[in-house]
Write a protein that binds this DNA or RNA. Structure first.
Length: 197
DNA sequence: ATTTGGATCTACT
DNA sequence: GTAGATCCAAATT
């Protein structure tokens, strides 16, 4: 089933863990593509200097202040990063989806990415956005309708609870030590240093 | 109008 | 493991 809005009303760390193994599905630009979420990061509403919302609302981060269950897409280093907005109040928090295990529409992904190696299709936040066709138009879009982009568990990647591994987040320049990155341990589509797989 | 710094990626060693 | 490419938007001039 497609996930309902209340799925995202939970606290951000719980949502980050619950998303592991679920499917992200896109029909942007026609061909349907899907992948299993294998790596996420939580960005907290309070006490998290690495969170984009921590310095207040700006033109580009307004989606983070919106209702749970919408997308927050922002540009960085000539790529996009895709987040899911969470929380049940005005407290801005979000889950960054960092990596997918490709499941459906591999040919279209290869076309959009311009690479053929399956390990490089959707491994890394910028790569998965390119493969799925996620762009600035998806910023603020709802993820709980089957329109262009949504999350479901029609098929789920099976793994055991104890296989979730928590590590520090990648690439952040502050709050470096907080263990807010969650991965399916040992999955070959997880990005980052091998110590953190 | 110009500068600066990022929740990155790739190619290379 | 590291260097260089890359580009948007916020801050500064």
């Amino acid at each position: 089933m497609i996930v309902e809005p209340d799925f995202f009303e939970d606290d951000v760390i719980s949502v980050a863990k619950k998303l592991l193994g679920m499917r992200l599905v896109s029909t942007i630009n026609g061909q349907r593509r899907a992948g299993f979420i294998v790596e996420t990061e939580a960005y907290l509403p309070v006490g998290d200097s690495a969170c984009h919302a921590s310095k207040g609302k700006t033109k580009s981060n307004t989606s983070m202040f919106g209702p749970p269950g919408i997308a927050y897409v922002y540009p960085i280093h000539s790529r996009y990063c895709f987040n899911v907005v969470t929380g049940n109040t005005n407290a801005p928090s979000a889950v960054l989806v960092r990596s997918l295990q490709p499941d459906e529409g591999l040919a279209k992904m290869r076309l959009q990415r311009g690479v053929k190696d399956i390990k490089r299709l959707t491994t890394g936040p910028g790569c998965l956005c390119e493969a799925m066709g996620i762009n600035r138009l998806q910023d603020g879009a709802s993820l709980t309708t089957r329109r262009h982009l949504w999350i479901d568990d029609d098929i789920a990647l099976h793994f055991e609870e104890q296989e979730i591994k928590a590590t520090p987040r990648i690439g952040v320049t502050s709050a470096k030590e907080l263990p807010l990155r969650f991965v399916i341990a040992g999955n070959e589509f997880v990005s980052g240093p091998k110590k953190w797989r």
